[in-house]
Every structure is written in structure tokens, then in C-alpha cells.
């Protein structure tokens, strides 16, 4: 049953790691804005939209 000492230590360590992640993500403002990132992810990245400019003017779209 002595293995419980190790298991206990491991589970506790894991929980502490999660706690630290949680606290640091609050500190970094991850939960400050719960809406905008969900919209932002739908925008195409800059690279593709820049190629669209060049092609977009002539009315063609090159994908």
C-alpha cells in the first residue's frame, strides 16, 4: 500500500500544475474577452487575403 504515497504525490503535483496554468491564464487576460477570438478565428489569414487583392482587382480569384 506504500505506493499510495507516490500516487498521492503525483496526483497532487498534477493538480498544482493545472492550478498554476489556470491562474497564469487569468493573469494573462485569457478570459477577459470571451467573444472576439471566436469571431477572429473565422477570418482568413493575411497571406491569402493579400493575394486576393492582386487577383481581386481584375475580378479573378486564384486559389
Amino acid at each position: 500500500m506504500e505506493i499510495l504515497f507516490v500516487l498521492f504525490g503525483a496526483s497532487f503535483l498534477l493538480a498544482i500544475i493545472f492550478l498554476v496554468f489556470f491562474l497564469s491564464s487569468i493573469k494573462n487576460g485569457q478570459f477577459d474577452d470571451m467573444h472576439t477570438p471566436s469571431v477572429r478565428i473565422l477570418f482568413e489569414n493575411k497571406q491569402t487575403s493579400e493575394t486576393n487583392i492582386e487577383n481581386g482587382k481584375s475580378g479573378k480569384r486564384n486559389l
Binding site: D33, H35, T36
Partner: peptide, 11 residues
């Protein structure tokens, strides 16, 4: 000259 801009929609 604008380096970056970020929106917080709820605010």
C-alpha cells in the same frame, strides 16, 4: 505606421 490593433467586442 499602425503596428497592430486588437478589438474587444464586448467592451
Amino acid at each position: 505606421g499602425v503596428l497592430a490593433s486588437e478589438v474587444n467586442f464586448l467592451k
